[in-house]
Design a binder for these strands. Structure first.
Length: 280
DNA sequence: TCCCAGGAAAACA
DNA sequence: TGTTTTCATGGG
């Protein structure tokens, strides 16, 4: 057990905002599985309290403490709505997730509520992962999911997503899709590579690139983000010439700039927690 | 019973 | 090319 004093960090917002699905809160403590470690975290007066054998460097990397939030805020602060979100949810940081786990997590997240997603990931881990503590399991590796018994996979409640998830696992397990290579690709090309997989469209690709590959220029457009843009009539003139939904991602990049991924996450969380907020 | 949820892809017009 | 429907699942 030890403490860190990160600058401008809010643990609750960071773990609750919907980017990760394997952390659960009990009172002031969060418990989660990262890799093959069960980690317990809390925060008091800005200090991060860590119950884990993992190093400070690990958490600094995981929580992106190297991101200069003040300058990111300045860079994305384009209007009253995002201004409110970055004030209210100050300290929310993007997390560096494991690419493989993040890929499967967002594939099985399509058209599902967050509790449903969490349940599916738990079932997958319980069925195909290793138990590292009573009740806590590692995320199954690509080989295991690629060779998974279809009936057992069915019992994880993946629904219509099961075939594409199995296919993706086979592609990663065979080496046909090398996730490590994608780190070196530019956002645009890594995105195209992901979208060649069945079950991965623009939104899922953007989530994986943002949350696992550190592509902060990814701007995932989910149902909440669509509603926000339409409800507040943000930049209506842009959408007169660009009417298809697929251009909302391009809009986000142009509007918020190189750190639009952060903007997206703050807007998304604000909408989930508070709905359409008043700006007066 | 209907509608929506961190959607994608086939079917349709 | 843009719009609608379908696909499982769970919760309100």
């Amino acid at each position: 057990m030890y403490r860190l004093k990160p600058h401008l960090f809010n643990l609750n917002y960071t773990l609750d905002c919907g980017q990760v699905f394997r952390w659960e809160r009990e009172g002031n403590w969060w418990t989660g599985v990262v890799g093959d470690h069960v980690i317990r975290l809390s925060q008091e007066n800005g200090q991060l309290i860590i119950d884990s054998t993992l190093t400070p460097e690990f958490f600094s990397h995981y929580f992106r403490f190297d991101d200069d939030l003040p300058s990111i805020y300045e860079s994305i602060n384009r209007d009253l709505l995002i201004d409110r979100a970055i004030r209210k949810y100050q300290g929310l940081r993007l997390i560096r997730q494991d690419p493989w786990e993040c890929l499967i997590s967002y594939m099985l997240a399509t058209a599902s509520s967050i509790p449903t997603i969490q349940r599916r990931i738990y079932l997958l881990s319980r069925t195909f992962g290793q138990e590292i503590e009573p009740g806590y399991f590692t995320f199954p590796d690509p080989e295991t999911l690629a060779n998974a018994n279809p009936a057992a996979l069915e019992r994880c409640k993946l629904g219509f997503r099961a075939p594409s998830i199995k296919a993706a696992a086979e592609e990663v397990a065979s080496g046909e899709l090398d996730l490590n290579v994608l780190f070196r690709l530019e956002y645009k090309y890594a995105r195209e590579r992901f979208m060649r997989l069945r079950g991965i469209g623009e939104k899922v690709a953007d989530c994986v690139l943002l949350f696992a590959f550190g592509k902060l220029e990814a701007f995932p457009v989910d149902t909440h983000i669509k509603q926000i843009i339409q409800h507040y009539h943000i930049d209506d003139s842009y959408f007169e010439t660009c009417t298809s939904m697929s251009c909302m991602g391009d809009w986000g990049r142009e509007y918020f700039g190189q750190y639009c991924g952060y903007a997206q996450e703050y807007l998304y969380y604000q909408k989930r927690v508070e709905g359409f907020v008043s700006l007066y």
